[in-house]
Nucleic acid binder design. Structure first.
Lengths: 298, 298
DNA sequence: CCTGATTGATAATCTGCTGTTATGAATCAG
DNA sequence: CTGATTCATAACAGCAGATTATCAATCAGG
């Protein structure tokens, strides 16, 4: 059996006329007669009753016609589907976010992707620290990552989204609240609330900032995420240095203050270098076109 | 695109190994490489990533594999379906019954057909008089008929099922009830209840019976079916001559009595002669084998 | 690090399927 | 009865696709 035979059969079944079907298929009429005959021989089923004047589907032929029409349609659809996947217009895009970036970037990214690539399903993995995202990008569990960067890992390409200064989160009744802006040195004697994971890029930036100011921070309490971290600050258990975008997370009992000459920390988009999958390429194109990178560093 | 290409693709996708797939397909390995390459070129989609040591499906290839496997399965199923229809193992069998025959024959026939041909759907057209069944058998609206016969119409073949004598249906308080058996002449003065349709084969047999006994029946009331006819008899509106199988239809107020030297009336199975459809042939085979015709004329 | 084994790709060749043209046979209309 | 229509058959030709032979790349084991 052969797809061509099925297409021929389909045409003859629709017209019930060998010559007309032949014309429609751009072949000579004997080719059709032969092809249908071969098909019937292979199936062991008479598909048409034909005289020299009239061609008619048998019940078996009628059934087979309905089936083949559906099957040919399905085949065509599956070709289109495969092409969609190959061109990145369809598939599963797994995007990772760091704890603080999900709030600001997730909505922008998903809006742009869904509008331009309606066939793409987004799978969000939130609250992934930068090293975890890098690992998953490298072993293929993740397609895109919004993370603290820039990443210098080979095999990962990144592009900077925003450069944020660190700001201080203080308990509302802290002695430094009246100051409009603080010097990091002012915090030397404070107890700090940090992120639980030692590999957190924010943690590293905090340590670097303090060291630059000449002291090593005393991290007394540790939180598994930004919400918990702010809650600890609100509970008066310490102060914290966080990226400025955390300000969008309002929490009573916590106030933010700028830092003089602050360390900055980048937020970047990262993806596996080299063998970029069509999905990732398409998504990157969309984000470029839609201005995902055009952020005023807040 | 070609079914062979799809089968080749399927084999390679399952094994992820060109040489092994080639062996399984009983072709040389280069044929596979070429075929897959052609398929990819036609779709414009890379289906495999391959090095000399490793073959792997792309996401598009994975999708296409799922689809083609389903499609190839559907195609195979539809071939089997068409063959089932062609061999009469599947389809719609439309069977007609006369008013009185449905009760006794419908259950037997449907039991035999359903047991031997589970793929066949029965469509019962009951209460069809013999001429109506003949007409429908000839123009293709009916495949089989259980009717009063034998039919001499060309284009119809029949086989006798039972030969029934006519019996008398009397009102329970009729003067003749005490007699164990009646002579038809005894009914010469009675009013008769007949079937409404003048072409009814039973009607004709009744008239013939009476004429043989030397009188013409006075048919005062007419019923559209056997139940109504017996109801009229029960209501004391007349007597009726009916086939003996009607006795199986008990109705208070009606008693049956044998007729001496009765006219007999045949019940036959009828079907279109000549171009017997596979379904009808298969059904006739089954009925033959299962003893549908082995009835003791009651 | 080298060598042989494995595996997919490529080149050249050939077989046979399938389409074409020419023609026949059967049916229908006028 | 005759011409037109339509499907089937026969003979032939062209090319798609299979085969064999060979190459190139990768990996395993000593």
């Amino acid at each position: 059996m052969d797809l061509k035979q099925l297409r021929y059969f389909d045409a003859v079944a629709e017209t019930c006329h060998f010559s007309q079907a032949a014309e429609r298929l751009h072949v000579a009429q004997p080719a059709l007669s032969q092809a249908i005959r071969r098909l019937e021989a292979e199936l062991g089923v008479l598909l048409f009753t034909r005289t020299t004047r009239q061609v008619q589907l048998t019940p078996a032929g009628e059934f087979f016609h309905r089936e083949t029409r559906r099957i040919l349609g399905d085949l065509e659809a599956s070709v289109l589907g495969a092409q969609s996947i190959a061109h990145g217009r369809r598939g599963l895009l797994r995007v990772g976010f760091t704890g603080t970036s999900a709030f600001t970037q997730l909505a922008r990214l998903s809006r742009m992707v869904r509008a331009a690539l309606p066939g793409v399903v987004l799978e969000v993995q939130a609250d992934l620290l930068t090293p975890a995202q890098v690992e998953r990008l490298l072993d293929g569990r993740l397609d895109l990552g919004v993370l603290r960067g820039p990443v210098v890992e080979p095999g990962i390409e990144t592009r900077t989204l925003t450069r944020e200064p660190l700001v201080v989160a203080l308990p509302a009744d802290h002695r430094l609240v009246p100051e409009p802006a603080l010097d990091v040195v002012d915090l030397a004697a404070e107890e700090f609330v940090g992120y639980a994971d030692a590999r957190s890029a924010v943690n590293e930036a905090v340590v670097a900032t303090c060291r630059r100011a000449g002291f090593s921070p005393t991290v007394t309490h540790r939180a598994p995420g930004t919400a918990a971290l702010l809650a600890l600050v609100a509970a008066n258990l310490g102060v914290a240095l966080v990226p400025e975008s955390v300000r969008s997370m309002q929490l009573t009992g916590v106030v933010f203050r700028d830092v003089l000459d602050p360390t900055t920390i980048d937020l970047s988009l990262a993806w596996p270098a080299g063998h970029a999958s069509p999905l990732v390429s398409a998504a990157l194109d969309v984000l470029e076109r839609e201005g995902f990178y055009d952020l005023n560093p807040a």
